[in-house]
Design a protein around this nucleic acid. Sequence first.
RNA 1: GUGGUCGUAGCUCAGCUGGUAGAGCACCCGGUUGUGGUCCGGGAUGUCGCGGGUUCGAGUCCCGUCGAUCACCCCA
Length: 438
Amino acid sequence: MAISGFPEWMPAQRIIEQTIIDRARRTFELYGFAPLETRAVEPLDQLLRKGETSKEVYLLRRLQADEKDSSDSTLGLHFDLTVPFARFVLENAGKLQFPFRRYQIQKCWRGERPQEGRYREFLQADIDIVDRDTLPSHYEAELPLIIADVLGGLPIPKIRIQVNNRKVLQGFYRGLGIDDQDEAIRIVDKIDKIGPAGVAAELASLGATEAQAKLALALAEISTPDASFVELVEKLGVTDPLLTEGLAELVNVVETARAHAPGICFAELKIARGLDYYTGTVYETQLVGFEKSGSICSGGRYDNLASSGKETFPGVGISLGVTRLVGVLFGRDALQVSRSVPTCVLVALPAEEDRPAADRIAAALRARGIATEVAPAAAKFGKQIRFAERRGIPFVWFPSPEGDTVKDIRSGDQVDAAAASWSPPSEDLYPAVRGSFG
RNA sequence: GUGGUCGUAGCUCAGCUGGUAGAGCACCCGGUUGUGGUCCGGGAUGUCGCGGGUUCGAGUCCCGUCGAUCACCCCA
């Protein structure tokens, strides 16, 4: 029986998911991120240190727990990888070299109501860079490039990375004279759901004047693929030091992305991100054609998350929602894989007595990196071929005293072959993932 | 956590106002005593999501529950 929100994929789907994980890992390492895994649980007070996400957290309880036991603080499963990482950095600051860049690919848990692309247990592939005391803002420009690199090499729809900076919003609202800037950010962030009129209404109930609401909406409408958003903001006539600072940072991110990966990164002044530990740049990523499914890759800069009072480790990170990405695409049947098993070659079995010889052939192929299995039984060759065909295994190997042959069952071509030297075309070595979307 | 829709064979679905479950595709066997995919013939298949209730009788009505999905919330 399935448990709501805890997806279990079929092997073909898992192969696709692993393809994405492998791509992410390989790319992260190419950019010099060190691998890390943190424990699944954190003390509850750690998890709740920033933000009021309490209701989402799953708690860990021992079945035989002593009711009177109050020694340890309650443990909760982590709901992202950034908070545990911040804790890890504080704990191990003495052993790490800064700036420290690491990747972490792990399950996360949130106690939410599941729907397509939203799960209670899901996989995130997260990268973060932290430094001691200060963090140069060029790192904020680097992260979208890495994500573009990961996703650009996968058979998925085009992506659109939307970037904003909370300083822009905060500074603009402050300059505008709105007192509760954080609440204003939350309201404007809902613009896609409730529309400009809805935002104006909520801002009004926050105490904003009509003129203020109008300008806030005008800001939210700004969306450019380059630095031209600055002029548009300046035209609105609001000034504030924080706004100026945020605009400069945002220019850097957008222009860097435009130079290295044009057409995928946009300054989008309406996005804000829910998690409230972000203090500067924030990212959100849409799959083009799947915008309704939400962001598949989000993050931002946090200046105070890893801070012990004495020391501060500002950081910036971005997290790819692997489960959401595949879940959304599976939901539309948009991904196919060439076979449901890793096997490239099936060694046919003429008779049960031939199994030792077949095993030797398989071993020779495996030794050269070719995934091989031996037929389960010495059935008619037609059946053995069908066994391979159903799983998508491309090659069937026929052992013979007169010399082995190998058949590509897709084309029907059959050629003489020796297990010590034959190799499949490189594109057949591993299951191939294909995407189909309009 | 709140509310809506849905849940019949592996898949897609049919099943009229309650009368004891069906089709197509897929699958298995044979034709084709060992090289599949076509064709022909034959065959198996369901705790009708689960539990309870109403009824002489429930896939069909009622309640609950689980799951999928959507909206809110939130977010990967």
